[in-house]
Design a binder for these strands. Sequence first.
DNA 1: AAAAATAAACGTAAAAATGACGTTATATAT
DNA 2: ATATATAACGTCATTTTTACGTTTATTTTT
Lengths: 245, 245
Amino acid sequence: MKNNLIQNLSVDCVVFGFDTNTKSLNVLLIKRFLADEKTNTPLVDDYVLTGYHVYENESLDDSATRVLKELTGLTGQYKKQFKAFGDPDRLNNEKDLIWVENQKFNVRTVTIAYYFLLKTEDVDVTNNTYQAKWHPINQLPKIGFDHKQIILEAYEDLKTKCLSEPIIFELLPDKFTINDVQDLYESILNIEIDNRNFRRKVINKKYIIPLDEKQVGVSKRPAQLYMFSKDIYQKIYQKSYLINI
Amino acid sequence: MKNNLIQNLSVDCVVFGFDTNTKSLNVLLIKRFLADEKTNTPLVDDYVLTGYHVYENESLDDSATRVLKELTGLTGQYKKQFKAFGDPDRLNNEKDLIWVENQKFNVRTVTIAYYFLLKTEDVDVTNNTYQAKWHPINQLPKIGFDHKQIILEAYEDLKTKCLSEPIIFELLPDKFTINDVQDLYESILNIEIDNRNFRRKVINKKYIIPLDEKQVGVSKRPAQLYMFSKDIYQKIYQKSYLINI
DNA sequence: AAAAATAAACGTAAAAATGACGTTATATAT
DNA sequence: ATATATAACGTCATTTTTACGTTTATTTTT
């Protein structure tokens, strides 16, 4: 009955990026493909999150950081551990497939799920060994394991979190327009926002700093560029205790 | 290097309750005591969270539910999985002590931490085998393992969450006064709230329902009793997309 | 070079929510 | 009856939000 031995321990990373051109919140996924050698029938043909076993002397956070670095080459990105997934039958459908190495029945794989926010421009997707690819959160392909659920729960957490903290700027280029910010909120939250009110609200923030630059290469009036100052934000930040139930 | 074998898997439960008399947010903790048989020197003398190994065919959620039931007899309480703790040296200081059965060095214990919100009145602390005791969150005793950190992180999550969701009512009796609600917010958030403004705000909520009852046994003007209607809340609830950064 | 088109950027006013504070009402205790 | 303590209500100024209309700057078209 009691089970004080043995499980697999892994981390999985939901990597979010924002495409300012298509105005789409994207998730970085890895292609899985495996065919039967004789019949050539595809056994696995889907996408999954990046993840890996946690090394023996590694903290959970470090493990997630390592996995992201291996995939993207990036470190220091916004990272949040948002949930552990560990139902006993979590990977049972997949148990003789790849990624799950030498697993026997009844071996539980607990995964600690993180999400990362990064600037799409920082990642070179074409140049990696993982066949990684960005997928719009609203048009996810066939997803393996229970990773669809993990992605959607990460997304829910992100939706809540972006309302109360300026994490959105982790997803934007260093220099952005007010409309970029609005597009991003609209994509994440799947809502429409009044541009005039939104603009005023954002511009009034002390930590949104107008630059001496405008957009280049646009075929209409170029917009003012801004940057986000984390320093200023942290200095003037004071926790709001506004009860909103 | 790689570690695809094995670790201990447990759940730990931070149980929150509110004492309307002392106006204190409390945590339910279990006494640990162990003395050296010869010298009688105390080896362990502190408090810890309830927790246990996850059973072989048990989901993480079910495991937490079981642990709470064993401690309090209660089921169906508000429950949230808020973080996994799994640093490789997490329990190393404690490795030859009780609770950690037959552990060897280098065995990692990952714990999935939950917090529960319950009505203090529902729990009979005196009548349990665990020597469980309520402790004000602001006057915690000596705490074993890394459970102090776990408690404080649960508390942080609760503080954030109670601002945007009416989970506070999980901590109050079924019938409560407006001042009870205020006391609870003040305790949790460690702030002072203007009674008149707070009262207006709360009373205006459709899901706060005045009863045909007043306080009894108080030595001053008895206050109106209210109840919280989860049904009405869920019916009229619509996600607010107010961006507050 | 002027006009048209388009998106950026600014403005205004009503409504709602919040914050700060004064006053009244109702029960119990003396 | 009167005092007392707490519950409960009220008012007003300020801030924030919502809902729109207007102007400005730049590019493209004529």
